[in-house]
Design a protein around this nucleic acid. Structure first.
Lengths: 156, 156
DNA sequence: CAGAATCATTCAACAGGTGAATCATTTTAA
DNA sequence: TTAAAATGATTCACCTGTTGAATGATTCTG
């Protein structure tokens, strides 16, 4: 037969999928040590930056459906990381906020993200990492995968 | 307060996760038009390159558990894309092979992969795409995400 | 004020994936 | 040669993350 394994170049798109999955899996491992899922982490990050968000707009920014957000917040509320307060302006909404404990956990999460980044980019030099960051950013903006994930058209 | 949105640089690890998820989702859309899941596509690709594989070794190379492979092959066999033949050497094993139809579908799959790659890399110049390919390959090999996914230590 | 829209919630359902137990077959040891 | 251990395929119950439709409360529209 032919040579069994000429060092073939592997599609870039596949590499991207695989490395993305690897990155996600590693990050999940790290957050699990804090008792959090990646979704939990996303919620905390978003509420840290934008306190008072409603569940609806949180769902939009997460790219999730509202019914999905309910058990997510339930669990974070049970653990005392997030508080639901009825909006006085519109009593249909909750205003979601981090508790003191939640803010603390968010801090730990930032540390985790830093170590995660460092571990993932370890095989590259700083220069290469910077290059990669630029290329990926260009790719992301080219595909309307924007700054924050699903910046959508509605208000709030 | 602070300025609400200084165009912050976004972690490279997060970009990687997001773009990887995007790439996977887009690829899944494409394969679905052929009536295939991404797992199906992986099986066909592997059987195209290595005919006669057993379900066990297929599971190893896919990074899946054997019980997962059963319904996967069931479905491909039902659709006439893959054939199970008992190994005469060891009647516990099947020898899995693509049918003529399966080979045809594999061809279509290659076309899809090409278009997928082109679409994904569209925002970049050819030079940038090549650069990205190199950086990702370096990253993958640095993380032992090797040529084919899980080249493992056992035989066959 | 009546009807439409909106937020949060529940619920049934589904896909994908996993581990334990089982059966047939092969290998190992005695 | 045979008893015991190992191996491949399969079944099964189960779990997690998700989704969409229906519901109740509240607010907006005209």
């Amino acid at each position: 037969m032919d040579s069994p394994d000429p060092p073939r170049p592997k599609r870039t798109a596949f590499l991207l999928s695989q490395l993305g999955a690897l990155a996600s899996a590693r990050f999940a491992e790290r957050t699990r040590e804090l008792g959090l899922t990646p979704s939990d982490a996303g919620v905390l990050r978003l509420l840290g930056r934008t306190p008072g968000l409603s569940q609806r707009s949180l769902a939009d920014r997460l790219g999730a459906v509202p019914s999905r957000v309910v058990p997510l917040i339930d669990s974070l509320e049970t653990r005392g990381l997030v508080a639901r307060v009825r909006s006085s302006a519109d009593r249909r909404n909750y205003e979601l906020r981090l508790t003191a404990e939640g803010t603390k956990v968010l801090g730990a999460l930032r540390g985790i993200a830093e170590r995660h980044e460092a571990e993932l980019l370890a095989p590259l030099t700083n220069e290469q990492s910077a290059q990669l960051g630029l290329l990926l950013a260009r790719l992301a903006s080219g595909h309307a995968l924007d700054t924050d994930l699903h910046r959508d058209t509605s208000r709030e």
